[in-house]
Structure formats: C-alpha cells, structure tokens
Write a protein that binds this DNA or RNA. Structure first.
Lengths: 205, 205
DNA sequence: TTATATACAAACAAGAATGTATGTAAATAA
DNA sequence: TTATTTACATACATTCTTGTTTGTATATAA
C-alpha cells in the first residue's frame, strides 16, 4: 500500500535509515544492497530511490543523524564554564562520550559502521578529511582546558598543554577504536571510564 | 606466454600480491575485483585463481607478508635486555615502528588497507579477533617494561604499570590510526616521534 | 471539482563479477 | 622418449546490482 501524508513519508525515510544502519552493520557498507535495505525497511527499492539518490546518501544520513549531535555535545562539555576544575572537565567530557556510546545503541552501531564496516575510498574519502578536522577541533578544545589547568597550577610536571592535549586525544582515539572492536566487552568496554580517570590522573599534581 | 619454472610461478604469485595491495589501496577491498588485480599484475584471472582460492586469501597473504614480521620485531625490541632504561626501550620500540612505517611503503599501504580500506564482516571478522589478541600481547610486553622501570624507580608518580601500559597502548593505537589517516602528513606524520617522546616523558621521574 | 504532484511499487535493461570448465604449452617425472 | 603435471589463458554460465522507466493510488493545490 502506498504511504500518503508527509508525516508518513518521513516515517518511511527514517525507517530506511534505521534499516540501512542495521544492514550496514551486519554486512558492511559495500556488501549491502539497496534491496537488502528496502527489504529490512519493508518497502521496495522504489521507496529508497525516492528518498535517497543512492547508497552513499543513506550513509551520510546515518552519519549526520548521530555524529553531528555528538560533536556539539562534546564541544559543550569541554567549553562550558563549569564549577569543576579543568582536568575533571576533560575527564567528564570523555566519560560522557563513553557513557553515551554505552547506552545509545544507534550511536554505537554508527561508530562501528564508520570504524570497521566502511571503506574510505572514492565518495567516502571525503569523510576522512571531516574526521581529521573534527579531531583537530577536539584537540584544540582539550588544549584550552589544559591551559586553564596550567594557570590554576593543577598539572604535575611541566608539560605543554599542546602536548598534553595531543596525547589525550590520541589516547581517546585509541580507546574508541578498541571500544568498538571489543564486541564481547571483556577487554575495554567495562573499564573504559577507569582508563580515562587513570589517564587524567597521570597529569594531576 | 605461459610461465614455466617454479621460480617463475613464485614471481607471479608475488606480482599478484603486490598488484592486489595497490588495487585494494586504490579501490578498497570490496570494490576490487580479481580482474582488476589480474590486469595490474599483467596476468589473467586464471593465474589468480591458480594461486589463490579467492580474494579473501589474497587479503590474508598481504596481511601475513607485512604484519607477522612486524609483530615479531616489536616483541623483540620490547623484550630484549638492552642497555637502555626500560622507558627508553618502550620509546624506541614505538619510534621504531613509526620509522619502519615511514620508510617501508608496503607496510604503509598494508596498514592503510587494514585500517580504512576494509570492512570487517563475514570472512574478515576473524581478523578483528587477531588484532585484539595482538594488542593484548603488546600491552603485556609494555607492562613488563613498565614494571622494570618501576623497580628501577624511574617512574614519576605512583601509577600501576598495568594502567601505564594500557594508556600507552591506547595512545599508540590512536597514533597509528591518525598517522594512517593523515595522508598529506601535515598533522601527525612529521611529529609522531615527538608525540611518542612526549608521551614517555610524562612518565619519567 | 479537477489537475497535478507526491510517494511509492513493479518491471525492465544492462553491465559487472564470480566461479568453473576447458584448452594448452612448457616443464618435469618416469 | 613419453606421460603427466604445472601454470596459466580463454570461454562460458549464472547470479547480483544498479539505475531507470513506467504505473498508480492518494493527497493536495487551484
């Protein structure tokens, strides 16, 4: 039967995105066909082609749905003038992201797709550049927090905020990658926040 | 013309692996066809099917050619009874890997393929488990080095060797990922060893 | 009320890609 | 020397995917 109102159409669109996420996760982006996605969403390829130009556009829709809000969120936690000391602020920001990842299954799946179920070539290569840019931004935010910590004399040793921020960023990148790869959760998932606290404590005076 | 001797056949095999690496890198594993690979290696698909069962087997051949030697190497650097202090040993081990990555273009390409040009589903999913196991091994080796450093009283603060090792491992994972994604080299490639030194210096008394 | 645009379903056409089967010249074994 | 493998090339059959086209019921605009 044909969907009718604009609201119904939007539901179809969302159903397709949701289905695509599940299919991408199970079969990888390349091996996922529009037929798979359509079937999962209980529509035909006709509907998919009506809402999206092709698979790549669906991919971006999935990414936008989850990544963009997350970036904002992280920015907020890091930049906010909280009552916590700056080091705790960094710690909270990282832990927040991990917690969100733990309880938000859509975000979890999206991360997994982006990290280990997608090949960054051709149309997808541009995404890499975006990721690098995001990383730069986050590192800068962390650096600012370390600079505040430095001014408040909270840091052990005499390391530059820049170096600390890069180290923290690389640590967190690694953590996210391991978190995603660690399906059964035995190695990283259950101790992620501990690892973060430990990382930050290394820097406390 | 038909290749004849066993030596010639082995050359063909190597040519196919080399061609596959280039094709995987350019098009991603999924979008690479055996025809692409055969053409690049100046043979026909017949030759490819003679030497390999399918694309997955070529993938593993590429991986084995570069990864297995690397793991041994890293183990050696970390476990060896060198004259350096343990912290410098860790530092050298990480820097060594980065240096090798810088000058060994095959290794570079292989890393890039494994990290951002491959989807870990179905037959490839098992590779993830292998990667996690490797990570565990490396973390353990690093931990042993930190324990030696602790005994020699070289460590600042009173952090557990286990926590330090995990932090270092995650840092290095992140570094490798960024190194690979950072094509033009502007952000990470040229300062990787600096970042490593800085990371280790955080721990020195 | 009628015309048109929306939101799909269904059918079609064409090109890839894969695996296998067959052919064959040269090397090696007997 | 002859028989048999080896190391491929070539041809074939089949299955997937994709993009497009066409059809159509409903909603909405005029």
């Amino acid at each position: 039967m044909v969907r009718k109102t604009k609201e119904d159409a939007e539901l179809t669109r969302l159903a397709i995105i949701e289905a695509a996420r599940a299919v991408f996760l199970a079969r990888g982006v390349s091996r996922s066909t529009l037929e798979h996605i359509a079937a999962k969403a209980d529509v035909t390829r006709g509907a998919v082609y009506w809402h999206f130009k092709n698979k790549t556009e669906i991919f971006h829709a999935i990414r936008d749905q989850v990544f963009l809000p997350l970036i904002d969120r992280m920015d907020d936690t890091l930049a906010s003038e909280s009552k916590d000391d700056p080091l705790t602020q960094i710690e909270n920001s990282l832990c927040d992201t991990i917690n969100e990842l733990s309880r938000n299954i859509e975000m979890q799946q999206t991360y997994e797709i982006m990290m280990i179920k997608c090949e960054y070539v051709d149309e997808f290569a541009t995404v890499l550049q975006q990721i690098l840019n995001n990383c730069s931004n986050i590192t800068e935010k962390i650096q600012l927090a370390y600079e505040r910590a430095s001014k408040k004399n909270l840091l052990a040793g005499s390391h530059s905020p820049r170096a600390l921020a890069q180290d923290t960023h690389l640590f967190f990148s690694g953590l996210l990658h391991m978190w995603v790869k660690d399906f059964d959760g035995s190695r990283f998932r259950y101790q992620a926040t501990e690892l973060i606290k430990s990382h930050i404590n290394l820097r406390r005076k």
